[in-house]
Design a protein around this nucleic acid. Structure first.
Lengths: 177, 177
DNA sequence: TCCATATATATCGTATCCGATTAAATCGGA
DNA sequence: TCCGATTTAATCGGATACGATATATATGGA
C-alpha cells in the first residue's frame, strides 16, 4: 500500500506555470507591492538560517552526543555556576516548560547537577559536572565561522544587527501586551 | 507534593558572582579568547531571533488560527499553484517528514487540497482553496517591520545578509558531506 | 499566626523538526 | 519484458517550543 494518504482521485488543476525566475542569483528584484514573496520576509530568512545552523552543527554535535539546544545550555551554564532555571532561561530566552526537560536529560547524561536551593526551595540551582566542563572544551572545535562565508568584521556586524533585531522584537512584543 | 523533581538535598556550591556586566548596552566588549560567551555566537543570535519572531507573530497568527510554519506554508503556496511536496520543501527548507503533517492539518482546516499527480502518482500536488487565498490576504496586515526597529534600507540589507549566511551554511554543509 | 497572593518550577497537550525507515510508483538496463 | 535501483511521500520515535495548568514554597498583611 502507498504510504497513508488523503483524498486521492481527481485530476490536478493547478496552472503550474514556472515562468517566474526564482533562482538564487544575487540580484533577485524585490517583488511589486502586494506580491511579497516568501524570500522577501526577514522572518523567513531568520527561520531558514536557523534551520541551516542546526544542520551545519549536526555533525559536530553528533560526535558529542548532544542536540543543538543542549549544547547552547552547556555553553550558557559554563559561564556561571549555580544559575537558577529562571536565570538560565533569561539567557536562553526559554522558560521552565522547555528548559526542564533539557536539563533533566543533561543531568541524566551526567553533565550537570540540579539541586534545590536550601535558602529558597522553590529555586533549582544548576552546576556543570567535570564531564560537562570537558564537553564544553571538546565542543570548541566546532567553529563555523568559515562556513558562514563572512569576513570577521562582517560576521561581528551581522551578529550585532541580529541581536538588535531580536531585542527590538522582544521590546515591541512586550509593549503591545 | 512539589512538581516531580530530581535529587533534592545538598547545598548549592556555585560561586555565583555576578560581577560581569552582561547588560543589553550597545557596546558589550567581545570576551577574550577562550572565553567566548553565548552572546558572541552568531548561531545563538539567529536562534534567539527566530524565537523572538515566532513570539512577535503569535498574536496575529492566533487571530488567523494558524501557527508560524503553517503561515509560512500558506505564503509559499500562494506563490504558485500545483506545487509538489518536494518543491514546497525546497522553498521552505523542509522535507516531507516535517511538511506532510503541516499540509494535512491545513487540508483538514480547509485551506488547501492535496492530490496525487495523475501523471506521476508518486507526487502530491498542492493547491490553496479559496479560503486559503483569503487567509493569505487577511494575514497581510501582520507587518512587523516597525517592530524590528530597522530603517527600510537596514531591513533590506540585513535580510540579504541573513540569506547569504544561510546559503553559505547550506553550501558548506553539503560540501563536507 | 493565618491565609491570600506571588513566585519558581514542573507537567501536559499540541505542533514542529529531523533521522531512519517504509511503501508505492517510476525508471532503466539486460 | 523483467527486476533492481531510484524517486517521492508518508510514518515513526525522540527532542524541542509553548500555552495552560498544577504544585510547592515564600511573602506579607490582618
Amino acid at each position: 500500500m502507498r504510504p497513508n494518504d488523503g483524498p486521492k482521485s481527481g485530476s490536478s488543476t493547478g496552472s503550474r506555470d514556472n515562468s517566474r525566475d526564482n533562482s538564487k542569483g544575487s540580484q533577485k528584484p524585490r517583488s511589486p507591492a502586494g506580491e511579497r514573496r516568501l524570500g522577501d520576509f526577514l522572518c523567513f530568512a531568520i527561520y531558514s538560517a536557523n534551520l541551516a545552523f542546526g544542520r551545519a552543527y549536526k555533525k559536530g554535535l553528533d560526535e558529542l552526543g548532544l542536540t543543538y539546544p543542549q549544547w547552547i545550555a552547556i555553553v550558557a551554564l559554563w559561564e556561571q555556576d549555580g544559575q537558577t532555571v529562571s536565570e538560565l532561561g533569561d539567557k536562553m530566552f526559554l522558560e521552565s516548560n522547555t528548559l526542564t526537560p533539557i536539563l533533566k536529560k543533561l543531568e541524566q547524561m551526567g553533565y550537570l547537577r540540579r539541586q534545590r536551593d536550601p535558602a529558597d526551595e522553590r529555586q533549582v540551582r544548576i552546576n556543570l559536572t567535570e564531564a560537562g566542563r570537558r564537553l564544553r572544551e571538546k565542543g570548541m572545535h566546532m567553529n563555523l565561522v568559515a562556513s558562514t562565508g563572512l569576513k570577521p568584521d562582517e560576521f561581528v556586524r551581522l551578529q550585532e544587527n541580529v541581536v538588535t533585531l531580536r531585542d527590538n522584537l522582544i521590546k515591541a512584543t512586550a509593549e503591545e501586551a
